[in-house]
């Protein structure tokens, strides 16, 4: 039986449709799950994707209220049992607030957070590239990517700057929790490529077990050729099926699908 993916919607989530489309495009048996869905039905999923948006209006801090939502009880339980959890943008903020990543020394509290962007402190939506900065197999969700894979995405957030105690940041960097860093189109990690002042240039964080990934930029917003700004779009000129095909950011979802097919 194919593994089932639950895409969780909190009040204020806004990226559920494209996330569902990306999951289905790679063959994942996926469905949208409402905040007031039957709890046992939520627990029955084999993996969870937390999409972007402004869950509970980002009150207190982005992700702070949603981390205490009933749905997250099922996600915590699932993550502890080794189910895969992918949080994107607001979903990544919820994952960190929930303590599902990085979870150093088996901790279950929030050890790091995605905080207000620097220097402006404001929401910003800009195209970025991210580079896989761990060995692919370190995290189950990235296992099918090539080492050092570069993926296009959109950083569309007001609170995406990784912040933590300096000792924690050091361990995130050294001990393989820093899954993706911002980079330029050539894959070079440069300070100019960081859109939000994020510590370590961090775009994504994983956990000890490698079954949770919290990624700030949206790979699903640059996952079809018609969305691209690079030469691939020009190459698809005049060919509707090529223009409507998945490419670019879809790679992360393909890797997720392979992990779930195992």
């Amino acid at each position: 039986m194919s593994k089932r993916v639950g895409i969780l919607i909190f009040p204020g989530t806004n990226s559920e449709e494209e996330t569902l489309r990306a999951c289905r495009a790679v063959g994942l048996d996926s469905e949208l799950v409402h905040w007031n869905a039957d709890f046992d039905a939520v627990r029955a999923f084999d993996a969870y994707v937390l999409p972007g948006g402004f869950a509970y209006e980002d009150r207190v801090r982005a992700g702070a209220i949603a981390a205490h939502d009933r749905l997250m009880l099922a996600v915590r339980e699932g993550a502890a049992a080794g189910k895969l959890v992918l949080g994107i943008c607001n979903g990544a903020q919820v994952v960190l607030e929930s303590g599902l990543a990085p979870g150093l020394d088996g901790a279950t509290n929030a050890q790091a957070g995605f905080t207000r962007n620097a220097p402006l402190g404001k929401y910003r939506s800009t195209h970025v590239y991210v580079k896989l900065s761990i060995p692919p197999e370190r995290c189950a969700i990235t296992a099918a990517l090539k080492p050092g894979a570069v993926i296009p995405a959109w950083a569309s957030h007001g609170e995406g700057r990784l912040a933590a105690h300096s000792a924690t940041l050091g361990r995130i960097a050294r001990e393989g929790f820093l899954a993706f860093t911002y980079c330029d189109a050539n894959g070079d990690v440069t300070p100019e490529a960081i859109p939000n002042g994020s510590a370590l240039g961090a775009a994504a964080i994983t956990n000890e077990r490698g079954n949770v990934l919290a990624i700030m930029p949206h790979p699903e917003r640059d996952a079809w050729t018609f969305m691209h700004h690079d030469a691939s779009r020009e190459q698809a000129r005049g060919d509707a099926s090529a223009m409507l095909a998945t490419s670019g950011g879809i790679a992360l979802f393909e890797s997720l699908a392979k992990a779930l097919a195992r």
Binding site: N14, Y123, R221, M227
Partner: peptide, 18 residues
């Protein structure tokens, strides 16, 4: 333009200013 989300819904082919 960067203050506005131009790509939510995953349907955008050309954004503001592009």
């Amino acid at each position: 333009y960067e203050r506005f989300d131009s790509v939510v819904r995953g349907t955008t082919s050309m954004q503001c200013g592009y």
